[in-house]
């Protein structure tokens, strides 16, 4: 049983015009087995929240705390956060030229498990993860995210989620750019990871579409760098009908 606690998190980013505050005091608690949807308009700071928790160097934490089972996440390096059990499925996964998917996955699994996985069981493990997401076996020999379509990148992220078995996963607009079939396949992968590892999920999205496949326990509306309303799944239905206008002060 794990708990990710975000308390009064304040984050700024350096721009040409000086530091700009993006997160203005975010409070969230995510426990194993729970699915939280964060919904909000573009520019509200949803992705900043995701990258700040993962430790991207571009963001400066100016206040508040993030803890995982009491351990101070903000004190950890990026790889230490992953080792502690955090995972970020990125909206724009990065290309790494010359590094094969197979090499990348094995290096990551070795780092997270503390020892190299046994070759034979590892090959089976990867093959099953790829099959489950309808990923062609030739993928393993391709370079990480290089020349991948939008859908392939997202499937590759969720394959990592299933293989690396984090405690808490942040999915940053995993649904963007997916057609209906790909959305279903990717969502099924997330649900498998939830069932298999009692995963806690922080699902960041703009649209309610993905919530038909991944059922949230809690919905948080995000606007202007903080959570402005919270509720159950019914809140998503309200957003579907009425949009974000009420929250952005227009």
């Amino acid at each position: 049983m794990s708990t990710l606690e975000i308390r009064n998190l304040q984050v700024s980013v350096d721009t040409e015009n000086g530091a700009v505050e993006i997160l203005k005091g975010v409070d969230l608690t995510i426990k194993s087995g729970e699915t939280h949807a964060i919904m909000g308009p573009n520019g509200s700071g949803k992705s900043t929240l995701a990258y700040s928790i993962a430790g991207h160097p571009k963001y400066t934490i100016t206040g508040g705390s993030v803890t995982l089972d009491g351990a101070d996440v903000l004190e950890m390096s990026v790889d230490e956060r992953a080792k502690a059990g955090l995972f970020l499925a990125m909206q724009y996964p990065v290309e790494v030229p010359g590094v094969s998917v197979s090499n990348f996955l094995r290096t990551a699994a070795t780092a997270l498990r503390g020892e190299a996985p046994k070759l034979r069981t590892w090959v089976t493990e990867v093959k099953e993860a790829m099959d489950a997401l309808s990923i062609d076996p030739s993928f393993a020999q391709r370079n990480v995210n290089e020349g991948f379509s939008g859908g392939e990148k997202k499937r590759h992220e969720i394959m990592q989620l299933e293989l690396l078995k984090p405690k808490i996963a942040i999915l940053d607009e995993t649904d963007s750019g997916l057609d209906v079939d790909a959305l279903r396949i990717v969502s099924e992968g997330v649900n498998r990871a939830k069932d298999a590892n009692n995963l806690g999920v922080l699902l960041i999205t703009h649209y309610t579409r993905i919530l038909r496949y991944i059922k949230p326990d809690f919905v948080h509306v995000f606007a202007n760098g903080k959570v402005v309303e919270e509720g159950g799944p019914e809140l998503a239905d309200k957003l579907e009908a009425e949009g974000y206008a009420e929250y952005v002060g227009s």
């Binding site: 430790g55 790889d79 995972f87 990125m90 990065v94 790494v96 010359g98 780092a111």
Partner: peptide, 28 residues
Amino acid sequence: DEQLFYLMSRGISIEDARRLVVRGFFNE
């Protein structure tokens, strides 16, 4: 930095991430 961040976000240490990127650079 984005490549290093991506690799490290998967638990890979900074040294191993740099090694992977350099190997990848020369691999072509």
